[in-house]
Design a binder for these strands. Structure first.
Lengths: 339, 339
DNA sequence: CTGTTAGCGCCTTCAC
DNA sequence: GTGAAGGCGCTAACAG
């Protein structure tokens, strides 16, 4: 007597083979669209598949093919629309190419997210795209060296061995922002960064200082918000404005922090943009609805996500770039009421 | 001569066993924290694991244990903060319990998302939590019957066999909204729904009509926005307001549609809340920043996510509720400037 | 306490 | 065109 299919689970390839009166192998051929299957057999098998509601088990398949057709995507906070939009873009690209995307959030407490990434690997992803945020370049380098699959980072331009880096041209962006503020007659510009994305903040911060010193304004720095979110931006901006010597402009690390600054100005009775102009980064859609609407550096999240996906595919085919590779994107300044 | 480890991949349990001079099984015991391992052996194995950077392959493990310690989470658009927040809540709950969350977006074009869900299953998840949105109750019922794992739906209160449903009390919410608007002196209330979430819209819509007819106001319905997002809400609200016979209040299906209505009023030169009061659903954080800030029905996304996770675990242990089960949550009205 | 055997569901290789 | 072996990496069940 054959083994009883006691399992409550789903039908396997063997169930289909039995139902169709063929061997497992033939079913496998049908499922993988192998050409050498007799049309009649194919039909029989397909009917059996439909009857039983069979779906091949990707894990079992991945075990033997060493390929899961799955990429991982990681960011520290998908609730930030910039990350969310990029995630969406990757999802769309993945679907188009028959890939599946496994999404996860980096856990700040878990070895700065490296633990989360390791877990992603145990899932058998063929590649990983991530916003480094809390991870340093050397974290990324180490991860890329040991993970055994391609790695793409989004949002920071760094030449890390074996890693493709996709990021906006921070210098161009800084120039756009600063030129605009100077043109608006602003003279004392505050830079509102955060402490937990050290290297991205650093790139952006350096670019802004540079642009400001090239202009006619004076820069004042604040790197004191925790997470780059609305609430933290509000707190940081408040202490900053209370302390600051008549700041007349505030640049937020991202739109959510800039929104926090908007609230801070409201709290303090400062008019935007007359008293204080505010500019953010990212170009999240909600920025159009604030009071006043937020001027921002728009990033092409979808385009960058698409590029990330393609880079992953390309690495799979031709191997990763040994000395690393940086793909730079042009920023765009969207001027709205807050400046 | 033994097989050459040509694989570029990661070390396997055999590599560790060789390195530590024990059998695979012993390594497996160490990795799974089996108690019956000699302390000295354990140390040797752990050292080998560290040296080789070994991480167990979850797919291989899941294949034999029939358990992946992974749940799937699906919603139609993670970029909507309500879905995003719930996703975040599940991620946190999962991590706390040693589970992993695989997140995916329902594809509208792909059999109304059922195809996406099937793909999720092939990944070997132990359970699925989802926002039904575009899926009907009978879609869900059919899916639950064939998926072989627990299913939890969030955001619609329906008694579907074998499914736990977690949702807000729509009648209570509708009463809160309508009582508030009537109290504000509003008499002609427009209901701005959408066409692609048929059953959730239906529940909410019916509850609102009922509440309005109990009050002293008159309801006017519009179910004409496509996706419930800002842009579509703006378009729908515009035609609605242009056509409508002096509407003095607008209830959006969710906050993003209500935000669209805010923009529509601005376009048409209508003052909010004097000419038209606007109320949304969900309580997304960005609602605090609009002009004016948005009155909204707050949903406890995190709490509901947590309940969803626990329900999944409970189904795994005690089986799913045969006739279905509905967990109802109390809504809360957050009054802000838009009403 | 540790090793051996068997097999999870599937695909690759090689027969026929 | 189809089937039979073998093994992907891992753990359950049984030795000892």
């Amino acid at each position: 007597m054959k083994r009883m299919p006691v399992r409550a689970g789903r039908p396997t390839i063997i169930d289909v083979a039995t139902e169709a009166g063929v061997s497992r192998q033939t079913v496998s051929r049908v499922v993988t669209n192998h050409p050498r299957v007799a049309p009649a057999t194919r039909v029989r098998v397909e009917k059996a598949i439909a009857t039983l509601g069979y779906r091949p088990n990707r894990m079992a398949r991945a075990l033997v093919t060493q390929t899961s057709l799955t990429f991982g995507f990681a960011a520290i906070d998908m609730r930030d629309p910039h990350f969310g939009d990029t995630c969406f873009g990757m999802q769309v690209a993945a679907r188009e190419h028959g890939y599946y995307l496994v999404v996860t959030e980096l856990d700040f407490d878990d070895d700065r997210g490296l633990g989360t990434l390791e877990t992603l690997l145990t899932l058998g992803v063929d590649g990983v795209a991530l916003f480094p945020s809390i991870l340093s370049d050397s974290d990324i380098e180490q991860f890329a060296a040991s993970c055994g699959c391609p790695v793409v980072m989004i949002g920071r331009a760094s030449k890390v061995p074996n890693v493709v880096s996709i990021a906006m041209d921070e210098n161009a962006a800084a120039e756009l922002v600063v030129d605009h503020l100077v043109e608006r007659g602003k003279k004392r510009i505050g830079i509102l960064m955060n402490e937990i994305f050290p290297e991205v903040v650093h790139q952006r911060y350096v670019a802004l200082r540079e642009a400001i010193s090239n202009g006619t304004a004076v820069a004042t720095a604040a790197v004191e918000a925790g997470y780059p979110r609305i609430a933290q931006g509000r707190i940081a901006a408040t202490t900053f404005l209370q302390r600051g010597p008549d700041l007349d402009a505030l640049i937020g690390f991202n739109d959510t922090m800039a929104m926090g600054a908007l609230l801070a100005c409201d709290d303090l009775g400062l008019r935007v943009p007359q008293d204080v102009a505010i500019v953010g980064y990212d170009g999240i859609p909600f920025g159009a609805l604030t009071n006043p609407p937020l001027t921002t550096i728009v990033q092409d999240s979808i385009g960058m996500a698409d590029a990330a996906f393609r880079s992953l595919l390309s690495c799979l085919e031709h191997g990763p770039p040994p000395e690393g590779k940086v793909l730079l994107w042009e920023p765009e300044l969207l001027i709205r009421g807050s400046s």
